[in-house]
């Protein structure tokens, strides 16, 4: 539970929440979450404070959901890819060619966490109160040579990301090379892999733009989300007024600020990328379609089966609802910053 409950000078309770985060300083994840922490601290007049441990120190990135569930941390933030069976509701975003961009995906998952009964029940059962699930961006491909069609991928040794990425890699005739994000730089440098899949954020954070000169958006869309949760017990035991501040900030975060910050940072990273490599390319629609069509497995069906076995009741209904939410939100919003970047360069 909250470890630092102390009586404030005016008799009200002061709450210190421990945060386990995978975010390194100045990263996209940190900048986004920082808004949420600060707003809550300010709107509760400092009655709630956050004690944020350095990335990977209290709980490793893959262990963070577990740390939040068992109460070692009160709040956590990490990639949902690390423990997919807890997050079928978010891993839906890794189905290739389904999810266009960060904002519609984040909003859809946020809405469905309460609107879809199965999802709400599973969050509760996992003892996680969801705060936000924001994809780190559309998946880009970087290589030494131009990668503008499926044929260019044939035979390439490709470092990919995402739960269903293997299917897409296979379908394109490329070979998967398993490298963690920090290992990728040295792996590419030595020729272990020819190309890599990363969001725009990764091209800068892992300095891949410095060794891979050709970057392109192949139309796969998002491939995972950065999830943020609070321990359910901690959340429900918050004093009413504080809980309503948390809810209010969380709502504003999901409806506006997460995306505003995401867009700002991604646009900045776009500048850095374009400064280094000149332009970010984008696949023709037919070419993306050709890649999508070449994937033989029915990944939506596979997601439904997996999600059901992970405890999400009515997973098929979730998928349908997710798709219509994406349609709804994609219509009236500005282009995803990765696409905007490709338009610029």
């Amino acid at each position: 539970g909250c470890s630092g409950d102390t009586e404030g000078s005016d008799g009200t309770e002061n709450i210190e929440l421990n945060v386990a985060s995978w975010a390194t300083p100045d990263s996209l994840s940190e900048e986004m979450a920082e808004w949420w922490y600060t707003e809550i601290e300010e709107r509760t007049d400092g009655r709630v404070t956050f004690n944020i441990d350095a990335a990977d120190s209290l709980c490793s990135a893959s262990e963070i959901p577990e740390c939040v569930r068992d109460g070692r941390a009160d709040v956590g933030q990490t990639l949902t890819d690390y423990s997919t069976q807890l997050f079928p509701m978010a891993s839906i975003s890794s189905i290739p060619f389904l999810s266009p961009g960060s904002e519609p995906v984040a909003k859809a998952i946020h809405d469905l966490s309460t609107e879809h009964e199965g999802a709400a029940a599973l969050w509760e059962e996992n003892n996680l109160h969801p705060i936000a699930h924001v994809p780190p961006g559309r998946l880009l491909l970087g290589g030494d040579t131009e990668l503008s069609s499926v044929d260019h991928l044939d035979g390439l040794r490709l470092r990919m990301a995402g739960q269903y990425a293997q299917e897409a890699v296979d379908a394109a005739g490329a070979n998967s090379v398993v490298l963690t994000a920090p290992e990728t730089y040295e792996g590419i440098e030595r020729g272990l892999a020819d190309a890599a899949g990363f969001p725009l954020d990764g091209t800068v954070a892992y300095q891949l733009k410095d060794i891979l000169p050709e970057w392109t958006d192949p139309g796969i869309g998002t491939y995972t989300t950065i999830g943020m949760w609070m321990n359910s017990d901690v959340y429900s035991e918050l004093p009413d007024d504080i809980r309503s501040v948390v809810d209010e900030v969380t709502e504003e975060y999901n409806s506006e600020h997460a995306h505003r910050i995401f867009n700002e940072i991604t646009t900045m990273q776009c500048d850095l990328l374009l400064d280094t490599i000149g332009e970010l390319n984008q696949w023709e629609d037919d070419e993306s379609q050709r890649w999508e069509d070449s994937i033989e497995a029915d990944l939506e069906e596979r997601w439904v089966e997996g999600a059901e076995s992970d405890g999400l009741t009515d997973a098929a209904g979730y998928l349908e609802a997710y798709k219509s939410k994406l349609d709804e939100y994609s219509g009236d919003m500005e282009a995803d910053p990765s696409l905007a970047c490709a338009e610029r360069g």
Partner: peptide, 9 residues
């Protein structure tokens, strides 16, 4: 109980 898995290839 939760048939915990890792996801790679």
């Amino acid at each position: 109980e939760m048939s915990e898995v890792t996801l790679g290839l």
